[in-house]
Amino acid sequence: MTLSLAISPCPNDTFVFHALVHGQVPGAPPVAVTYADVDVTNTAVQDGHFDLIKVSYAVLPWLPDDYALLPCGGALGRGCGPLVLVRGDQPNRDDLAGAHVAIPGELTTAYLLFRLWAGERSPARISVLPFHEIMPAVASGQVDAGLVIHEARFTYPEHGLRALVDLGEWWEAETGAPIPLGAILARRDRVDIDQAAEWIRASVRAAWADPAASRDYVLAHAQELSPGVVEQHIALYVNEFTEDLGEEGRAAVEALLARAAALPAPTR
């Protein structure tokens, strides 16, 4: 049996799954990995092609019954939320009513948080762009604002941008809960759920025990990121919730999905 796995090329995912992908987890089967942007995996999960797949927590209400949420391997934490960026020379504004905003995907947790924050002040136009194209689009004036995730927290000033709002800070102030961003799912009919969780936990622990072992692999897949930014990224997104959601993590997921249920289906 070969396990099919779909994750992003982001440093947190490659760091967490290095040992599993490279056959260093005792008892785990060989792994065939596909690297894809989160907007791609959020759509691919509907086809049921992968045994294990990383998706946004915002996708959970639309999951096929074939998949189960694993309590580990994902991204959930504090101080790690999405940002809404505008050009540094734009005048201050309280909202984005009437604006053109680029987002990384309609089913991303980032966009769900954005919709919860915006409320009735919704932008006039939404465009979905690949993650790496959003900051350049804002900087060039192609769009008025951009919703960004992950390493953009550390690099946006280099593009002449500033943060209009930190949706992580907003969420934590509203709820007191950490932010559920990315989840790991397993196919019920092809993977033993408890066993898969143990393989992933073992991979996380191996990464923490020897961070240098995954360095070349992580840097090879990082998108033009400096080693310093990669280290910051991993330190922020790989935390105790990655090893196990626990009661606090599960409560945060429930809070997010409860608020999501009050919104209409996402649309541009």
Rank of each mutant, 00 (worst) to 15 (best):
D95H: 15
G119A: 11
A235M: 05
V101W: 02
V230A: 08
V230Q: 04
V45H: 05
A139F: 04
P26H: 08
L161I: 09
V143R: 00
I53A: 04
G79F: 08
R188K: 15
Q24D: 11
W208E: 14
L60A: 08
V21C: 07
L147F: 10
L167P: 02
S203M: 11
D194Q: 14
P136T: 14
Y67H: 07
Q223R: 14
L70P: 02
V59K: 09
P157K: 12
R125S: 11
I7E: 06
R93D: 01
N92M: 08
R162P: 03
L219C: 10
V38G: 01
A145W: 01
A261W: 09
P30L: 05
T41Q: 13
L236N: 10
D66I: 09
L63D: 12
L60N: 04
D13K: 07
A196H: 04
T109M: 03
H100Q: 11
M135R: 13
V143E: 04
P26R: 05
D89H: 13
G105I: 06
H18R: 04
T267F: 04
Q223C: 03
L185F: 03
L20P: 02
P264Y: 05
E158G: 15
Y111D: 10
V31G: 03
Q232D: 12
P104Q: 10
Y237V: 01
D166S: 11
T175I: 06
G105V: 03
Q195P: 00
P180S: 06
D216P: 00
T242V: 10
P82T: 07
V191C: 13
C80Q: 09
A212C: 05
S214Y: 07
A137Y: 08
A97I: 10
G141V: 12
Y156A: 06
S140T: 14
G105Y: 01
G73D: 03
S8D: 00
L225S: 00
A261C: 10
S56K: 05
P130T: 09
A212H: 13
A177T: 07
D216Q: 15
G246F: 02
V143L: 03
T34K: 14
P178D: 09
V25S: 00
R121E: 14
V148C: 12
D216H: 12
D194L: 12
P264L: 03
A139C: 08
R93T: 14
P178I: 05
Y57K: 06
R153S: 07
A209Q: 14
S226R: 13
L112C: 15
F114V: 09
T267N: 12
N239P: 13
L147H: 09
I126V: 15
A197T: 13
E158Y: 03
L263S: 09
R268A: 15
G249Q: 09
C80M: 15
A261I: 12
P136F: 06
H150V: 10
E169I: 03
M1C: 03
R250G: 00
W171S: 00
A183P: 03
D94P: 00
M135L: 11
P29H: 05
R259P: 06
S8I: 01
V38H: 03
